[in-house]
Design a protein around this nucleic acid. Structure first.
Lengths: 233, 233
DNA sequence: ACAAAAGTGTTGAGAGTACACCCATGC
DNA sequence: GCATGGGTGTACTCTCAACACTTTTGT
């Protein structure tokens, strides 16, 4: 408080700003995150979250969406800011703070492809992560925790499914996120009681068993998905 | 994804990183935030949240605590990261992203004093804010919302009170945060049922009326205050 | 004795949980 | 006709909300 000369970050050493994106999906009954293989040092050839530096003329939200698109070929309509990681030594080479975002996507909706500074892309089981660059393992754990927590009160699971869905598919998503089985009758009563699903009148047969009725998420009944940013592209 | 030359923030225009702190207290039955009067442009002489640029050798948490101490003479033991604001035009002069933190303090514990880049300090009713610099009004609103939400499940109110407290004082804090009256019996049953309060055996007389029993918050029963960072100074 | 704040129990409603069988279809 | 997944109701428990009077102190 005795300092009279203002600290000017534009003429002093200062942190750079990056964004990283944790993209979740569900496939083969597993919760998975999207990883890319880094082209550049530090951590050359290591697995990492898609992400990169924020440019002067774009918002954080835009930067996150752009990096996800560039490095993994994935476009999302919805992103939520997770946390900003700012430990001094989280990047061994230089000072970088990272604003982490997370997003959810229906696995069938896309096929990721490497691009930008990434030489490879893959989906990886959240519980079986390889060694990751920087503090990215910690970031993924934090994101998983937030996802579980969020799934308690927000209809996040709809992001992980196609537009038309069955109640069993929805229940399955919640079971994977929480890692435990749920009672079918209680689940259905609860979800239908929220009045955010409307029956399409159609049904879908999975080959064997009775065909399941299809529902559609009523976005208008639940405008706010709980803190996320809806991007308009 | 066709870009081959990596974007290097250290040799290109890039955002600077600041922290801002929303410090809440309760006084005279109002929820208040700490504001400082800016010495420097932009928004010279305007009211704003205490905050400033992050230095290369300190974490975000440390920067938030340092700025609060420098500009307002306030030391806190606990800070929680709120959100990172990154709109391109939030600072009219240059590109700055701001990592917002919030903290709670017992109003009697300190007397803020201006310092650093601040020429004045005051406590201000959350519902009657003056014009604020940058997007700080929006940040305060966001923080207030988070505080209400957080108060539902985390024992945040203890941060706003002295170590020894009465149940009526605690109830009063919750009433101010939520802006509505609570039932005394239900409140007491619920709080005592959490088993995070221990009676000190003492009591305190406020002059008139029956003296109230004093309690102390059992930190060991509730290690995590719900996402915050406990600073060790 | 009275004003002022502290303290104390019971009841009813709604939400969550546990639990088992019939239904529609493909093969 | 049988295997497979879809679809349905009821009873118990627990939590939350509503509600009014007695107790202790200072003046």
């Amino acid at each position: 408080m005795t300092e009279r000369v203002p600290y000017d970050p534009f003429s002093n050493p200062h942190p750079a700003v990056a964004v990283d994106v944790i993209l979740f999906t569900i496939a083969d009954g597993e919760l998975r995150v999207l990883l890319i293989r880094r082209e550049l040092p530090p951590f050359e050839d290591a697995w990492a979250l898609p992400g990169g530096f924020v440019r002067a003329d774009e918002s954080l939200d835009e930067a996150a969406a752009r990096e996800l698109d560039e490095e993994a070929g994935v476009s999302v309509r919805w992103l939520e800011q997770l946390y900003t990681f700012g430990a001094v030594d989280r990047d061994p080479a230089r000072r970088v703070i990272s604003v982490a975002y997370f997003a959810l996507i229906d696995a069938l909706e896309l096929s990721p492809r490497a691009g930008g500074d990434a030489t490879d892309v893959r989906w990886c089981n959240v519980r079986r992560l390889p060694k990751l660059a920087f503090d990215h393992k910690q970031i993924v754990r934090y994101a998983h925790q937030r996802l579980r927590y969020k799934a308690e009160y927000a209809p996040v699971a709809f992001q992980l499914l196609p537009k038309d869905l069955t109640l069993s598919e929805l229940q399955h998503v919640y079971e994977v996120i929480h890692g435990k089985a749920l009672d079918k009758r209680n689940f259905r009563r609860k979800v239908l009681g929220l009045e955010i699903l409307e029956p399409t009148g159609e049904s879908r047969s999975e080959g064997r068993g009775r065909p399941a009725a299809l529902y559609r998420f009523r976005r208008d009944r639940f405008r706010d998905l709980g803190g996320g940013v809806v991007l308009e592209f």
